[in-house]
Each structure stands twice: as structure tokens, then as C-alpha cells.
Simulated scan of single mutants.
Amino acid sequence: MAKTLLRPWLCVLALCWTGHLFADFPEDFIRLETQQPYFGQLGDDEPQRFYFVLEQAAQITLESSTLARINNVHPEATLFNADGRRITSDRMSGQGRNFRIQRHLEAGTYVLRVDNGRPCGSLYGCPNVNRDYQILLDIQEPGRF
């Protein structure tokens, strides 16, 4: 009973802090936290989607990294606000063939879509492609002075 009464308040708090409910996103969206790298694999067919929440305006940096190999994925990123409006995209501003997005953003919820910019294209598959990559979110909140 206590959980049932608490749940509506959590939703109201989430809406007040971010302007959007977390439930607006499908379950397969991955939450990014500052200074906690996401490690995963990027396939050819389906992009990966992430979201993060800013409680106040801040300077953010989103950056991917892959192993320093020739035969690996090339992460490409597009940043959206929670209403689906495209803010920016990047594919090779980071080190090597990685994306790097640096922006000043207002408080709110944001979505990052990551695609493989170098899909396989072979009828036989690409078993030697290294699909490992990571994403790091850095948030620099403004100082008091």
C-alpha cells in the first residue's frame, strides 16, 4: 500500500525536476550519468538511445571512444531535446573516429541517439569488426560566482 501511494509523488517530482516523465521513453533507452561511462557494443542495424537529465543549465560534453584499431565501429551521435527536436549531431570531432559534442544546455531531459557510421555492408557479415565502444557524459555545472 505504501508503494502505491508513493509512486504518484515520484512521478510528480520527476516532472517538476525535468519537465518530462521518465516513463515517456521506451524501456530500451539507457540513462547516462555524469562521470559513469557506458560500455557496450554498437551494431549495424539498430541505433542505441540514451537519455540524461540536467537539473540546471550546464555545459555538457558527450564523447565516445573505441579501441585504436582500424576495423572497429564509428559511433555517430545526434542530440535531441525531450520533445524530439534535433539540437546537434557529430561523427568525428572526438579522438580518432569518435564523436564529441560540447554544448551549453538548459535544465531538462535530453536524448542521445548513437548510430554506427560504418555499417558492415557485406553479404557474409563482418565477424572481425570490433563493436565495443564507450560513452562518457561530463557535466560542468556553473559555479556560484
Rank of each mutant, 00 (worst) to 15 (best):
L10R: 12
A14Y: 03
L15C: 04
L15K: 07
G19F: 07
H20F: 15
L21M: 06
L21Q: 10
A23Q: 12
F25W: 09
P26D: 08
R31H: 12
E33Y: 15
E33A: 11
T34D: 11
T34P: 09
Q35V: 03
P37K: 08
P37L: 06
P37D: 03
Y38N: 04
Y38T: 03
F39V: 04
G40M: 07
G43C: 03
G43A: 10
D45Q: 09
Q48T: 04
Q48L: 15
F50Y: 08
Y51G: 05
Y51P: 00
Y51Q: 07
F52I: 02
A57Q: 12
A58S: 11
T61D: 05
S64R: 05
A68R: 11
A68M: 09
I70H: 13
N71R: 08
A77W: 02
T78Q: 06
L79C: 08
N81P: 06
A82Y: 10
G84N: 06
R85E: 14
R86E: 14
I87M: 09
S89K: 07
D90C: 11
R91H: 13
R91L: 11
S93V: 05
G94M: 07
Q95I: 11
G96D: 04
G96M: 10
F99I: 03
I101S: 02
R103I: 00
L105S: 03
L105Q: 02
G108Y: 10
T109I: 06
L112R: 00
L112F: 02
V114E: 06
N116S: 07
P119G: 05
C120G: 01
L123N: 08
Y124A: 14
G125L: 11
P127W: 04
N128W: 13
V129M: 09
R131Q: 03
D132V: 01
D132W: 08
Y133D: 01
Q134P: 00
I135Q: 01
L136Q: 09
